[in-house]
Amino acid sequence: MSIQHFRVALIPFFAAFCLPVFAHPETLVKVKDAEDQLGARVGYIELDLNSGKILESFRPEERFPMMSTFKVLLCGAVLSRVDAGQEQLGRRIHYSQNDLVEYSPVTEKHLTDGMTVRELCSAAITMSDNTAANLLLTTIGGPKELTAFLHNMGDHVTRLDRWEPELNEAIPNDERDTTMPAAMATTLRKLLTGELLTLASRQQLIDWMEADKVAGPLLRSALPAGWFIADKSGAGERGSRGIIAALGPDGKPSRIVVIYTTGSQATMDERNRQIAEIGASLIKHW
């Protein structure tokens, strides 16, 4: 067993022997301040990774656009098919120029040779490549099948209805392509620590998230040296922004954090800054 596999296998073990965790309302004060600064709703939840206990939450059962955070769930569904012998990570998928959609920095470079399922998941999570996500959605049967996968996990809230990039439209009061912070946090925890996926697939999923290259201005910008984070960000229309993450000190994750916002007129930089400040408060009061 590799060191990384050992780390993920012992996530519940280490967490069980940690000192009790206590909620700190100071972080919620910052979440509410972010709402004021952005002029928009902000949803927040913080779960203990081992027990699933909610440590703090704000608007945990209000719907927010998922945006690209759905790509972690998508690759979880792909990995479940791999575990069941219905898919192979090494299978190569070929596609054409007509398949390319807006923001496809990886797939646009491989029109000639195609990409493997493993490479597509890596591109979808680490670079948020939209064509990679659409190609992977095709392998599982489309958005409705991802929703069905989530329902089978016990998540009857999260739903995907459309493809990239239309799913980022974020129309107010439109339930399409949305989740709730509580539902997303619980589902992410199941994917990373539950028995739904094999140990190898859980490790692969967290490795992809740990290698995320496009979430630097968010929670990662607030992390002290030595902290662990595996995350996936999302951005959408109407001032929408979000991030889902597993993080913790001492090089291992111990909490799940989900943050979503929508309806702001603020710039992307300002949305990023507010999420980073929430992260800084979380870490300060850990």
Rank of each mutant, 00 (worst) to 15 (best):
P25K: 15
L28S: 07
V29T: 15
K30S: 09
D33T: 14
L38W: 08
G39P: 03
I45S: 07
S51C: 06
S51R: 08
E56M: 07
F58R: 09
P60F: 08
P60E: 13
E62P: 01
E62D: 10
E62T: 09
E62I: 07
P65W: 00
M66W: 00
M66D: 00
A77E: 08
R81P: 01
V82E: 06
D83S: 07
D83T: 06
G85M: 10
G85E: 11
L89F: 08
L89T: 06
L89N: 05
Y95T: 02
Y95K: 03
N98K: 14
N98H: 15
N98G: 13
D99G: 06
L100V: 13
E102G: 10
E102N: 13
Y103M: 07
P105N: 05
P105C: 00
T107S: 12
T116M: 08
A124F: 02
M127S: 09
S128Y: 00
N130Q: 00
A132V: 04
L137G: 04
I140W: 05
I140E: 04
G142A: 05
H151Q: 15
N152V: 12
D155M: 01
H156N: 14
V157S: 12
T158F: 06
T158D: 01
D161Q: 05
E169T: 12
E169G: 11
I171D: 15
E175K: 12
D177W: 01
P181G: 03
A185V: 07
L188I: 15
L191S: 02
T193Q: 15
E195G: 13
L196C: 15
A200H: 12
R202G: 08
D207W: 12
M209K: 00
E210C: 11
A211D: 15
A211M: 15
D212N: 07
D212V: 05
A225F: 11
G226C: 08
D231P: 04
K232H: 00
R238A: 11
G239H: 03
G242D: 02
I243Q: 04
R255Q: 05
I256Y: 04
V258I: 15
V258K: 04
G263P: 05
G263Q: 08
G263A: 08
Q265H: 14
Q265P: 14
A266T: 14
M268K: 07
N272I: 04
E277C: 09
E277N: 13
I278D: 02
G279D: 02
A280R: 15
S281G: 08
H285K: 10
W286Y: 08
